[in-house]
Nucleic acid binder design. Structure first.
Lengths: 208, 208
DNA sequence: GACTACATACCAACTGGTCGGTACTCTGCG
DNA sequence: CGCAGAGTACCGACCAGTTGGTATGTAGTC
């Protein structure tokens, strides 16, 4: 089909391999410390392939952020907490889900775009924007459930659904940093517990 | 004799200059992207001076983290919120103080060790440990006031003073990331507002 | 033949780090 | 006091390895 002329070619296995390699390596060592050669080695392709698919290392980073948005978007979309009919249950279920995800090696549960934006916000507007879009896009989905919950429970408050949704992302990103600093996820779990307690308070829900 | 202080009578000046340069450059571009040459240029010293004072770039990072602990330790020690006799006022005053600090360029109010640990947790145990010590050391001071407040208000709770103190650091670190992603500090302010509301709730204090 | 999707070889610039040298200070001894 | 000698602080040329990026070639497909 000639229909899909927009965007880069979708047939390349190399592109996908490089993107996948970027997710794991950058989350482990950070963006700047990850070299193009390393990415190529992990993906099993050569440098020619890399620069065939991406104009530059920065372009790979932008593509990786977008890829991350797609991956995580699909992942959360299919999670069970969406089934709750009570929107507040969906919000709390989301937090429980995020807490349950804190398993395995640190690099496996931390956030690619949170890691990248920290290094690139001052040097690459494109990367910064892609990371911002990823975080805000995810937050918007959380905000939708929060807004429904506010409506359902008739919450009138000085805060907005959007700001609370962003606060959940703030807590998660901060939890990842503390987990990295301490070398384990316990501190992150405890922080999500605090966040959950806060949300329960805002919606006047008794602890179950 | 030469009464004018010609020459390098300012001993240890290079070390301090390098540390100071590290604080500003690493917060702007991240650790890996900061080169030794760049540090030297900013500090106005040569590479010989750098490796005279620090065994390696990583050693500089560890020293910078410790320097950061001292600087911020002294800074918060002298802040006005310590004057409150009510320990809860000290805790809330701390949060207000942190919120008020969110002015100027992003690199000027963000946290050096939070930035560094993100990049170095997997590659340098020494840097990770130094960053962890900095964060935990600061959290311990906050925890002391929280513990006093719990005693004073006779709070019995499933959470500890330490975990709440770490939660404040989680929120702050996360707030910095979102601020970097969005390019401004408003989201960080909003998140600290949420955190303050949570603390007020935990201590059953009415909004003033 | 034109185009895609790579592979290979290569490069200039830059990287962290080394090393021999210099200028100055501090210490101790006579 | 003078003065040798050890030590400290710093300089800047230099090094080997690595960096992101490029130029060219080529096998397969339309």
């Amino acid at each position: 089909m000639n229909a899909d002329r927009i965007g880069p070619s979708r047939s390349g296995g190399a592109r996908r391999e490089l993107l996948e390699a970027a997710l794991s390596i950058i989350r482990e060592k950070g963006y700047a410390a990850t070299s193009v050669d390393e990415l190529c080695a992990e993906a099993g392709v050569t440098k020619g392939a890399f620069f065939h698919h991406f104009r530059s290392k920065d372009a790979l980073a932008v593509a990786a952020a977008n890829h991350w948005s797609e991956i995580t978007g699909a992942f959360f979309e299919s999670a069970a907490y969406h089934k709750h009919s009570d929107p507040l249950d969906r919000v709390l279920g989301y937090l429980d889900f995020r807490k349950a995800m804190l398993k395995g090696a640190i690099a496996e549960f931390t956030c690619l775009v949170g890691t990248m934006v920290q290094e690139a916000y001052g040097t690459s507007p494109e990367i910064r924007a892609a990371c911002e879009a990823s975080i805000s896009g995810h937050a918007a989905k959380v905000a939708a459930d929060i807004a429904d919950a506010m409506k359902h429970y008739r919450i009138r408050a000085p805060w907005t659904a959007e700001s609370l949704a962003l606060h959940t992302q703030v807590v998660l990103q901060g939890a990842f940093i503390l987990a990295k600093a301490k070398g384990n996820a316990k501190v992150a779990e405890a922080s999500i517990d605090h966040l959950r307690r806060y949300v329960e308070f805002l919606f006047r829900r008794k602890k179950t």
